[in-house]
Computed example of a mutant assay.
Amino acid sequence: MAAAPSPPSPRQTLWDISPPVQPGSPVFPGDAPFSLQWAARIGPNCPVNLSTLTLSPHTGAHADAPLHYGDEGAPIGEVALEPYLGPCRVIHAIGCGPLVRWQHLVHAIPDPAALPPRVLVRTYARMPQDRWDDDLPAYAPETLERLAELGVLLVGIDSASVDPATSKTLDSHQVLRRRGLHVLENLLLDEVREGDYELIALPLRLSTACASPVRAVLRALA
């Protein structure tokens, strides 16, 4: 007798776009690597497991604070939360080269007036989750300028930085500062199709930190 067919899987409504944070997670050369130690373990005299973390706030999916690229900027615990929550558009610019330019995005912006205020760009076919990429793709500063002009509040990318790894002037970060743009870096977009979603990626209320890890997720629009 033939087995009954499996029921159809429900339509996916939630995408976790946060890479795992674990030993070996790539960080900018010289930054603090992730580590976890056990301060206590369950046993005869202890009812709980208790861990201690050491990590850079730029580990995994994270939100940079204005303080990261300007001494006068706010720490992450003082930034507004609204930009990290709401409609967004995921745009593919896979294999675009060292810089995401406007020409790599325009195919997904047929009506600029209808562009959501959050834009996430996928540049990797497969995001490197276990190694640092010296040739990481970044945003061209003029691309960020153009997005700001269209009313975008937050930009994201699946690489570790909106600037090239070798940059000393951080031109794209300075556009963020000047235009008041918020940013998410190190997003895992490997399984996400182009299109519109709801973004939920709230930073921790770290009162004096230059960034915060986020648990970034996308939810299907109703």
Rank of each mutant, 00 (worst) to 15 (best):
P98M: 09
E194D: 11
A63V: 06
R101Q: 15
D133G: 15
T52A: 14
A201L: 06
E194W: 02
V48E: 13
F34T: 06
G156Q: 02
A3Q: 09
L189N: 09
L144G: 07
A113F: 00
G151M: 04
A148E: 05
V155H: 00
A211Q: 05
E149H: 12
G73R: 01
E185N: 08
V119D: 02
D171S: 15
A40Q: 12
A125W: 14
P7D: 12
Q37R: 10
M1H: 12
L67K: 10
T52V: 15
A113S: 11
L189Y: 05
R126Y: 05
S161R: 04
G156S: 03
S172V: 02
W132T: 09
I200Q: 09
P112L: 06
R146K: 13
S161G: 06
L221F: 07
L53M: 14
V79I: 14
V162S: 00
P29L: 10
H68L: 05
V119H: 02
D111W: 03
G151A: 05
R41S: 13
E198Q: 12
D16W: 06
I157D: 00
A65R: 01
V48H: 12
Q22R: 15
M127Q: 10
E191N: 15
P213D: 04
G180H: 03
H107L: 05
S35G: 11
L67G: 01
S18H: 03
A222R: 11
R146V: 02
V79W: 03
H58E: 15
D190W: 06
R146C: 05
A3S: 08
P23W: 09
G95E: 11
P7K: 08
